[in-house]
Design a protein around this nucleic acid. Sequence first.
DNA 1: GAAAGAAATTAAGCATACTTAAACCTTAAT
DNA 2: ATTAAGGTTTAAGTATGCTTAATTTCTTTC
Lengths: 217, 217
Amino acid sequence: MNTSPEDYLKNIYIVKETVGKVTTSGLAEKMGITAPAVSDMISKLAKSGHIKNIPYKGFELTKKGEETAINLIRKHRLWEVFLVQELGYEWNKVHDEAEKLEHSSSDELITKLEEYLSFPEYDPHGHPIPDKQGKIIKQKVIPCTELEVGDIAEIREVSDASQEVLGYLTKVGLRLNVKFSVVEKINFDNSVQIEFENQKIFLSEKLAKNIYVRKSS
Amino acid sequence: MNTSPEDYLKNIYIVKETVGKVTTSGLAEKMGITAPAVSDMISKLAKSGHIKNIPYKGFELTKKGEETAINLIRKHRLWEVFLVQELGYEWNKVHDEAEKLEHSSSDELITKLEEYLSFPEYDPHGHPIPDKQGKIIKQKVIPCTELEVGDIAEIREVSDASQEVLGYLTKVGLRLNVKFSVVEKINFDNSVQIEFENQKIFLSEKLAKNIYVRKSS
DNA sequence: GAAAGAAATTAAGCATACTTAAACCTTAAT
DNA sequence: ATTAAGGTTTAAGTATGCTTAATTTCTTTC
Ligand SMILES: [Mn+2]
Ligand SMILES: [Mn+2]
Ligand SMILES: [Mn+2]
Ligand SMILES: [Mn+2]
């Protein structure tokens, strides 16, 4: 499937947020395309003023590029809210639908949708929804892998990329805002064992990395 | 903007419905592209079994092609209902939005949307909405140009292609289900004068052609 | 039934987002 | 300071939906 230039900007923004820095290969990996494709598009987006690029050195979004990225993220997350809250979708099915809808809705439509949904602040995975002006709440969260034994934490965000991860979380009863304590941590494989509602759950590194929490101890 | 193969099928179906027969040039005109582009796509869609084509003679949808067309029309019309009924759009603004949304929504999403909207039978312009099985109500309607002086008629359908026409209709108070009588008909320019709710309105041919009615006298 | 006119198709080429293969920088190790 | 490794960019070429120009086919007219 063909990706739009907008999509590159969005993914640059998100990779920067979650990983810390964006590289050609990192972005290619995330988007499921090859490095030359990314390199190509970066040049184009640099020409159009959405990206500041120094070949072989690195690139970053300009103000203009960031605005475009945030606007697309806004559309994505509002659609996700609609799908879950109004149409009754499971939270692990909405990402792919929103990925398409975000490109097919005018700003005006999104303004109306936002009002229809009563201005939600977070999407179904706990991600903040940018407002019309592009302002976005930045939550201070850490991945479960950074917790220590004895920590008490509350789930604030869950990565929405993997359907399997989200499906598994639902199965074991983990949702947003659930509070738990860390029972055991195995440095060996970066897994953690947690307890909540009187049950113990084992989180592999892969799982733990996708759950973002706020410590409350 | 690039049109998808699906869109050709949809437009073939609609032109067939409204004009009676579909030609390469007719379709090109409707879709705002050139005849060679249509000719090209027809060949491709013939290969994939959506169209039966005899070069230089004509083409028509196969069963498979019609199913695809109807499914897209279904998506289009359900989105239009959503935009008007839920988001409060004017009926002359929804066509363009739906034109994009129809390509970005899975069958599953549309199933859920249809239920959410309580299974509407008609879209905001009076066009019937195909059900999940592709069954579609065929209304027997005639354009206003075919009315005679003295006829009493009720508006059943309005073409949704022209924003201006729809905007004008709203301005003069013409909506779906409005009943009127034909006061005068000028064969000269194919215009008609109608009366409803104690006001007389003049409909040019261009206008009259876009309003479909059911005679009730 | 030949020729003119109209419509459709084919040909050649463009734009865009991709691919693999080759060339090019940068960096880190010896 | 060289060199080797890795990541990045450029080169060359593909797929797709378009364009204009040329060609083919059909239809109408005489
Ligand atoms: Mn998402
Ligand atoms: Mn999300
Ligand atoms: Mn429409
Ligand atoms: Mn409509």
